[in-house]
Design a protein around this nucleic acid. Structure first.
Lengths: 191, 191, 191, 191
DNA sequence: GATGAATGAGTCTTCATTCAT
DNA sequence: AATGAATGAAGACTCATTCAT
């Protein structure tokens, strides 16, 4: 792991525990094993570091989801992979997932261009548009369906974390909720 | 509005715009029309102010929801009032609702006792337990259903805010999603 | 004990424990069982309170010493009473004695007029001048003798406090040191 | 003089004039020619600065006394050097000596470990123990003798400062009082 | 690239003091 | 006389950021 990566990883850990404000750059630097100056060598400002962390994490998540979806053929299967993959990634990357929420409810969000924000949700939207064009979804606004499924993903994840469910049960539960969600949004006529 | 109330109202507005850290206590005080010292007369620390704001808002929300539910008789109707009431409260109290999310993804959350946290979600849980005991819900963990419906509430709200939907369409959309959600969690046999 | 007295007594206790700076007037007031405003009703400023406390204590000490000396007849006996009385008063009024030192090494000392300062040490000087005029003391400056004996008083007191000597041994020790001190300053020819 | 030294020197001067509380860290910093932040770079808190100043001064005093004693051979001579050296150091380092008293009657004293306090008075105690083991002192507790001589040192110094005695007379007076003190504590049989 | 001493603006918080009741 | 809410000036301390080495 090179220095910028180490800095980002350390920042993530500390931000999640202490919040942005509660984490001085000096602490990030020292815990990352670099000097104060080095941090600012790679990230011009603290805000830039925060945004870079967000962008990096979002990139990793998207890359992971893409790899999950690629191998599926049907719309439902793609959708399932997206749903299940999201929850599992969130479970395996608790800090990163928490950070995303933290970031979205902070003024830092304004520092990310709308263009970038749009791109990041593109995959999800595209997936649903494809499904809808094949008559596979209820006649609801695609964006609504997207938002609702994203909410469900958050919901399942939150439940699993709070209840500390075991791995086997976990898999079953995720799948159950996926099926419920699919039943909710899918066109019953061609189910 | 007495002084503590003015302080809380001003703090809410500023926190939502600038974040906790981005809002100096001095600005809260001056915009609330009181002196710096007065703020600290009523709230020992800034953190205490943040927590007090959260507790107050949660209290108001819960009181509002309780008033909504009281007049309903059937489980589904209670549930509907809860669902619709939540979304509408969120729409009418955008700042307060945003603040709740902000707060939940910040280290301040740790300053709220578990007891209080439990109390705040009690109504929701009770509602669902009652419904389940009457065989009205699918055989899923009540907490899961609670978390999922809460997520749906967030989802609809988020969609409505982002899309700036008009009032009539809004009401219809909320009701549609409620029905979808109910269909998702209700026991189909006695639907 | 009326209110000003209660305030002074409380202030003494708190000053000794926490220092002048470490003791807010609000704490003095609350622990004295009066309101914040009442304290400032009796003492215009905090500094005035500090000085009033000093003056009061010094007055009590002097009154006590005067009562001790009154009944003695010879110079040596008066001197003994002064010496022993000082040490015993210091032992019985630990806080007050500590406060005097605290006060003397603080900028508050400047708030006491020189006239008052002079008056307070008058008794001691007078005692020694009387003794010297009777040829009872070594031919040293009276002020030097005064300063040295005062230092010895401090010294014995400090030792007794630090070593927590028992009462009987205490009395003997004080007397021993008095005799040593007397031998040091008294004119050997007419001893 | 490096920055920490400059800060300590400035702090000493200001503390003696205005007291701990009467001296803002900002004033110390600016008069020392460094920024506010630099002061806190070297001393984590104002209290730590105060304690560091005390420790430094005590260290300097002890080092000076040690150098004075080293060259003497007999107990009495060592004792004389200690006595005279102490008074002269106090005269030449008025601020530092005043600060020591100020510090000893302040709550800051509690911040110095007992171990350190013990070490600082070790030299004095050792000196007297050595003298006593050679039968050179009266059969009194060594600690008492130590406390009494320390008090005499304070006394002479106080007198000389108050009376503004000239240098020649000064030396004679210090020596006279030393002899008196020695006569007071030394064993008369082997004098 | 890397360092870490130095900076100083910015913030929370305290507290002596006032004053209307 | 007594209260205690209100004030705001003042101060300790933090921390993002710079820059000479």
């Amino acid at each position: 792991m090179d220095k910028p990566e180490k800095i980002l990883a350390t920042a993530l850990r500390l931000f999640v525990t202490n919040g942005f404000h509660g984490t001085p750059t000096s602490k990030i630097a020292s815990e990352a094993g670099v000097s104060n100056g080095t941090l600012f060598h790679y990230f011009k400002t603290k805000d830039e570091l925060v945004v870079a962390l967000y962008t990096t994490i979002k990139g990793e998540l998207n890359q992971f989801l893409e790899s999950q979806i690629n191998t599926a053929s049907t719309s439902k299967e793609k959708f399932r992979r997206f749903f299940v993959g999201s929850v599992e990634w969130a479970l395996n990357n608790g800090d990163a997932f928490y950070f995303i929420q933290q970031f979205r409810f902070s003024p830092h969000l304004n520092l990310v261009s709308e263009e970038e924000t749009r791109q990041q949700s593109e995959m999800h939207t595209q997936l649903l548009q494809e499904a809808q064009s094949l008559n596979g979804l209820k006649p609801l606004p695609v964006d609504l369906i997207a938002t609702l499924t994203a909410s469900q993903i958050n919901g399942v994840h939150q439940y699993l974390v709070e209840k500390a469910v075991g791995p086997d049960e976990q898999r079953k539960l995720i799948d159950d909720v996926f099926e419920l969600t699919w039943a909710t949004v899918a066109n019953p006529e061609i189910r």
